[in-house]
Amino acid sequence: MDLSNNQAADVLQLKNIHKAFGGVVAIEDFSLNLKAGEIVALVGDNGAGKSTLIKIVSGVHAPTSGTIAIDGQQTSFKDATEARASGIEVVYQDLALADEQAVYMNMFLGREKTKGPFGQLDRKGMVQETEQLVKELDVRIPSAKTTIRNLSGGQRQGVAIARATHWATKLVLLDEPTAALGVAETAKVEENVAALKERNLAVLIISHSLDQVFRLSDRICVLRRGQQIGVRETAKTDKNEIVSMITGV
């Protein structure tokens, strides 16, 4: 019963998170721990507070009250940059990619590799690393030099996840990564998400597809109108239970 040791293994600890926008309470009282190599799915109806929670963890919003700890260290991120520096990456619902730039520039956006005395961009190095990464993750794009605009939705999401994979050292947050994708493309993205687990990253994924949630997750956390209804081990629950938790009937 060494509780403290057990907690030290948790990558993310959220305790009594509360968030209000003016008078609107978006998150009531939320607590959750995530371990390395674990995928937790966050489900709930529209407006339940899922995206808000991810924004709190990624430093976009500050919680009104409650604590966030990374590797047992309590933190409060000033902005998304600080969260990123702690090894947290986000894949957004609406892609955060620059359409007119090449894949490799997006992969290194804001963190470009440079070389030489005048800080020149190391394009060759960035292209090489990108090509290796997309090969490893089996993201099928024509080349690292392709412009994002010329990629399909699935390829774009593949690039966004590859970027998160490349930079995350602890935790990847995904907000409906397959919302706009077809069947085959969704399967591909799910493979990419599963690969994050193999790299021993903790994953928190929002999805409206229960099939997907049951395929991917180790645990399922249900939110309803800002209230945390409960957390279930995926192997020990079924869709009926989750649906009734989501809808409250």
């Binding site: 986000v90 956006l109 963190r111």
Partner: peptide, 8 residues
């Protein structure tokens, strides 16, 4: 927005 969230 993409630039902002990547720290630019």
């Amino acid at each position: 927005r993409a630039a902002q969230v990547t720290g630019i």
